[in-house]
């Protein structure tokens, strides 16, 4: 088992190395020089050169790359171009608000998705099943932005049911999170339900289900004891893969509802060409994703000894 874990971790290193390469190529090679945008139009060549030296952009690319690798390995990402704050500090502060929106929304959304798909499996082919399919496909066809804009305008601005935007730490912040959370759930429900439904229907046609019915077990017992357990494997895989991406929250939701998390931070960084911030957020996102994948694989290996041999 231990050797499997070690092997998985070693396998992850090239991927992370690849991520550093991609982010470096995007920002330092293609992106090139954000200095002109930073100094404004009236700046002289001297100022530009000075700023470039300060940011280390005058050095050859390979040196810039090694510098970037050093930053990553020490988790010290330098300072933001725009706010001059330490990036590691910014990320630490932004993670809380992001998770306070993402975790409950993700949790309730997934549970709701699973419940609906179980009901669909129960009533497959009937009106409820068809209605769910129609609604989820229709729901998936609307732009995320349309949900957010319409939700914020009609439910918060016009009707006053929810605060329009804002964030506060602790329990006082809960009212602010309800509407963005609700929109999150609605946006993700369509594709979730469709996926879960396919999984459930795949399972329902299996031989063991027929056997269970033949033994004389009731509908609900078969569904909850047999089908759900087997269906959980693909469902959990899908959910676990999504978890690392929760840390950036939802870029758009945070931006619209003024939640000071990593999502709004990313958007601000993009608007002000704040490359080091985006690089850091991207890299940490990838790190979490790779880490999450290793954990998933280890869980599989624990559950199923055959996996370890591969």
């Amino acid at each position: 088992m231990l050797s499997y874990i070690i092997r998985r971790i070693i396998q992850a290193i090239p991927t992370l190395f690849g991520v550093t390469l991609v982010t470096f190529i995007v920002f330092n090679v293609v992106g090139g020089d954000p200095v002109y945008q930073m100094v404004g139009k009236g700046a002289g060549q001297k100022e530009i050169d000075a700023l470039r030296r300060e940011l280390g952009l005058d050095r050859p690319l390979y040196q810039q790359y090694f510098f970037y690798l050093k930053q990553i390995t020490t988790f010290d990402f330098g300072r933001s171009y725009a706010t001059k704050q330490k990036i590691s500090q910014m990320i630490k502060e932004g993670m809380g608000p992001s998770l306070s929106l993402a975790v409950p929304a993700f949790f309730f959304g997934s549970i709701l998705g699973i419940i609906i798909s179980l009901l669909v499996a129960l009533y497959r082919g009937k009106l409820f099943d068809r209605l769910t399919v129609v609604l989820s496909v229709a729901g998936m066809s609307v732009s995320v932005l349309a949900y957010i804009i319409a939700g914020q305008y009609y439910l918060a601005y016009m009707s006053g049911l929810f605060p329009i935007s804002g964030w506060e730490p602790g329990l006082r912040g809960v009212p602010f999170l309800v509407l963005p959370g609700l929109i999150w759930v609605i946006v993700s429900l369509g594709s979730d339900v469709r996926f879960f439904r396919t999984v459930m229907l795949d399972e329902i046609n299996q031989d063991y289900v027929r056997t269970a019915y033949a033994k004389g077990l009731g509908k609900y017992r078969v569904l909850f004891r047999h089908v759900l357990k087997n269906a959980m494997i693909p469902i959990i895989t899908r959910l676990v893969i999504a978890i690392p991406f929760l840390y950036t929250g939802s870029l758009l939701l945070e931006n619209f509802f003024s939640i000071p998390g990593l999502g709004s931070m990313s958007i601000n960084a993009i608007n002000s060409s704040d490359f080091p911030v985006i690089k850091a957020i991207t890299f940490i996102g990838a790190l979490l994703y790779v880490g999450g994948n290793i954990v998933t694989d280890i869980c599989y290996a624990l559950a199923d000894p055959r996996v370890r041999l591969k």
Binding site: P14, T15, L16, G18, V19, L21, V22, T23, V26, F27, V30, G31, G32, F245, T248, L251, S266, I267, I270, S273, I278, I281, T282, G285, A286, Y289, V290, N293
Partner: peptide, 23 residues
């Protein structure tokens, strides 16, 4: 596989926005 696992571990929207920005 190395190339695509690299791409799939980067948060999609961030990479997309970053790329659109630098281009």
């Amino acid at each position: 596989v190395w190339i695509y696992s690299t791409f799939s571990s980067i948060p999609y929207l961030l990479l997309l926005l970053a790329l659109a920005l630098v281009l």
